[in-house]
């Protein structure tokens, strides 16, 4: 088998898998233009009615705004704490640090509903039910495992002697982190950040329990729309998000193209 042949097959197969990943998006985009009052392909013609409903609805805007900042703040917190924790465990590398790292995975392994009961009880005592800080805390701690796992996987490729060398040359722990370790685990940090963000962005159960009436995040609003008649606005929101990612990625690509290659 020659080189091109083998790579070609792998690439073709990869594109098929990517097509599978994109498939529901191909359903969601036309659904957002449906002329019916429920989630379905357009019946007779394309209609902008649900886009209009979405754009003029302060409820949806509020929900998006709430979800956006809750997800952003809790992702930042989870990324900072999670990355430091993963690096610390990697560097200490003792039996106890291994235990800590394993414990960090727990929030992924326990059904959310059970945690929701517990955090509700705690927040009633602390008077944090229906508070922003309460939701951010809950989403941060449940987002941590994603960051710890992905950063740890990235750290696996780094030679520990790199750290040793840096310290040997007189770098402080802070400098070593900043200049030696973190730059080497950026892909892990980024995927951990995406996972933690999506975790918060999509999280419904905990918010139902501790959100009170003040917090109606996007998943909660969607669930409200689904329960009645599968409100097509949820397809509009999804399409909007797809457009937004497309925009960000192509803007970045355009910027790269303009920058001269070094």
């Amino acid at each position: 088998m020659n080189r091109h042949h083998a790579t070609g097959i792998v690439t073709a197969f990869a594109w098929m898998v990517l097509g599978f990943l994109a498939l529901p998006a191909f359903a969601v985009v036309p659904i957002s233009f449906t002329d019916t009052r429920y989630l379905s392909m357009p019946d007779e013609h394309f209609s902008l009615q649900h886009w209009r409903a979405f754009l003029s609805s302060s409820e949806w805007h509020n929900s998006i705004w709430q979800s956006l900042w809750i997800a952003t703040v809790s992702t930042l917190a989870a990324v900072v704490a999670g990355t430091l924790c993963a690096i610390g465990c990697w560097r200490v590398s003792s039996r106890w640090s291994e235990r800590v790292r394993t414990a960090m995975i727990l929030p992924m392994a326990v059904p959310t509903i059970v945690y929701a009961l517990g955090i509700y009880r705690l927040y009633v005592d602390l008077d944090l039910v229906g508070s922003a800080i309460g939701i951010v805390f809950a989403h941060t701690v449940t987002g941590l495992p994603y960051v710890v796992l992905t950063v740890s996987a990235s750290l696996a490729n780094i030679d520990p002697r790199l750290e040793q060398a840096a310290r040997g040359l007189g770098a402080s722990v802070g400098q070593t982190l900043r200049w030696v370790i973190v730059p080497n685990v950026v892909p892990g940090i980024l995927s951990g950040a995406i996972f933690a963000f999506i975790h918060s962005w999509d999280e419904l159960i905990v918010v139902i329990f501790i959100g009170g009436r003040a917090f109606f995040t996007l998943p909660r609003r969607m669930w409200d729309g689904i329960n009645d008649n599968l409100d097509p606005v949820i397809a509009v929101v999804a399409t909007g998000m797809i457009l937004f990612t497309l925009l960000v990625l192509s803007a970045e690509l355009a910027l790269r193209a303009r920058r001269p290659k070094s």
Binding site: D127, S131, A132, I133, G134, G212, R213, A214
Partner: peptide, 11 residues
């Protein structure tokens, strides 16, 4: 306006 709930008691 905040339905008395957005911020915690301490805030």
């Amino acid at each position: 306006n905040t339905e008395g709930r957005i911020y915690s008691r301490r805030v």
